[in-house]
Computed example of a mutant assay.
Amino acid sequence: MSFHVPTVDISSYTGLADPFGRPATAAALDAACREVGFIQIVGHGVPDDVSAGLAAAMDSFFGQDLETKKAARTSGVNRGYTPPKSEALSLSAGVAPADRMNDFFEAFNIGVTTDDHPELALPADHYAQNLWPDVPGFEEQVQRYFHEARRVARALTTGFADALGLPGDFFESFTDHSIDVLRMNNYALPPGEIELDADLTGMGEHTDFGIVTVLWADRVAGLQVLGHDGAWHDVMPEPGALLVNLGDLMARWTGDRWLSTLHRVKPPVVDGRIERRRSAALFHDGNSDALIRTLPSADGVAYEPIRVDEHIEAKLNGSRGGVLNTTATREAERIRTAVPG
């Protein structure tokens, strides 16, 4: 069977279509989550001008010189600027690359802060303040998209609850102060900063950490997903669609009935240069203090309960701290046995 990422119209969950269509949508979500773990979603309701504004904001920031961008770098929190070759996502999945920190993408992160929930005593490390660069319109345009992407993530979790036969509000108590992070990625570097060879790593093999990821991306080749056949398959968003994939916490909840799919970025090289690629991933990771237990109805792997903050910290220690994540044994084995390519 050929690899295929299914397209699902979620308009019955975003208020753009009759809610009577939800059972069929929930069934389609369940099939996609069981068979692939990646979904093309339409009917999400994100206005075109909001997505265009996000792209323009990214261009404005990433178009600056490296030293200017480094002024927006933070230490010890998942916010601000990340320069090229300062991360290795494969470490979060239990695999050490030959070059310890080799992912050449650069990124800028924002997220939910303690100020967003003044009624709660939230930990400052997971709900850190955002650092906004002095780029005209950047904060406004990025915040607009962040708001829309979070809305889509919440609509999806309602659909997921229906798909799993759970109460419609099941995920709300786990996500009412969710560690939501928007990571904007840029995969273009000036000539001479990297060696253009077959082992070029834009973003190493990894699974996402939390509940669900909502991804806006250019229609440029590079994203690859590991299929059941052990081979890497190219994935590109359809026009107007957002890509959605599940994270580790959803796989733990469902006992691996639903897949936290391994993926990576291997950008194409055209005429000796990397073709530019941009993406923005909204990570909907759950409340820091939420305890994730495998659902009683799950008939697969029975995971040990884990707190969201402990899981996220172990993964970030790998990708950003350079510490091999020794708990990611399943992911590491799948990467090692994948068909080269």
Rank of each mutant, 00 (worst) to 15 (best):
V112R: 01
F62D: 11
N102Q: 10
L324W: 02
Q64W: 05
P190F: 00
L295K: 07
L215K: 09
L122T: 02
D162H: 10
N102G: 15
T326I: 05
D103V: 01
V235E: 12
N325R: 13
R320E: 10
P167S: 09
L29A: 07
V95T: 05
F146T: 00
H228K: 12
L282D: 00
T14N: 06
R219V: 01
G80D: 12
D103Y: 01
S173A: 13
Y81S: 03
P167A: 08
V95Y: 03
N245P: 07
F38L: 08
P19G: 04
H206T: 06
M250K: 01
T7I: 03
E106M: 10
H284G: 00
R219I: 00
P305L: 06
G322M: 00
L226D: 08
R183Q: 08
P305E: 11
G240E: 04
G76L: 10
V36L: 10
G21Y: 04
H147S: 14
R320F: 15
L120I: 12
D180V: 12
M101I: 04
A328C: 04
E331S: 14
S90M: 12
A31P: 00
I274H: 01
T113E: 06
E195I: 07
T337M: 08
D218F: 11
R273F: 02
W216H: 08
T114I: 13
V269R: 07
E140N: 08
L91H: 13
A298I: 04
K69D: 10
D18T: 09
I41V: 15
A28E: 08
R151I: 05
T213Y: 04
A57R: 00
G247T: 10
L89V: 01
L259S: 12
G255N: 13
R336E: 14
A198P: 01
G15K: 07
S279T: 14
R320P: 00
I110L: 11
H263D: 14
D49N: 13
G286L: 05
D218V: 14
L122K: 08
Y127M: 06
I306K: 15
F209D: 06
V152G: 06
D115I: 01
F20A: 12
P133S: 14
I306H: 11
I306D: 14
E140D: 15
D309L: 05
A28N: 07
P340M: 15
V5R: 10
P97N: 02
E275T: 04
G168H: 09
T337H: 10
I194G: 07
F108R: 02
